[in-house]
Amino acid sequence: MRVAVQSGAFDLGVEVSAFSAAVPGAGAVVSFTGLVRDEGGRLSAMEIEHYPGMTETAIAGMVAEAVRRWSLVDALVIHRHGRLAPGEAIMMVATAASHRGDAFAAAEFLMDYLKSRAPFWKKEIGADGAEWVAAKDSDEDALKRW
């Protein structure tokens, strides 16, 4: 289990390869990557603020819950903070399980929880100013299925 909260970029290929190479007995690895959208060219950057300390603890709690619920062999979460350009990877999750159903479900669970329970706040920087991204009701509703 690894949780990394960092400002620097990560190499998706390297991360997934290393993760997949170290999950003995697993038959399925699922990975998801979130990118900064350019919003039709309106967005020049995304600034991500976080709560150092709480972020790591909150994500570790989600990962432990996912591992318990879906008997994961391993899980990885990398989430960046700071200023990111459109097209850059914001975060990734990877899950490893015996079968794909558990790996997919656990990855979705982690994504849903990261969206509204990990202390990150996104600010969109555009040509006409900066605006904090508002949380969506649908993100909160997504937690109910778990």
Partner: peptide, 10 residues
Amino acid sequence: VAFFPPMTGG
């Protein structure tokens, strides 16, 4: 104690 708006991670 920390105060903040609803979180927008992921």
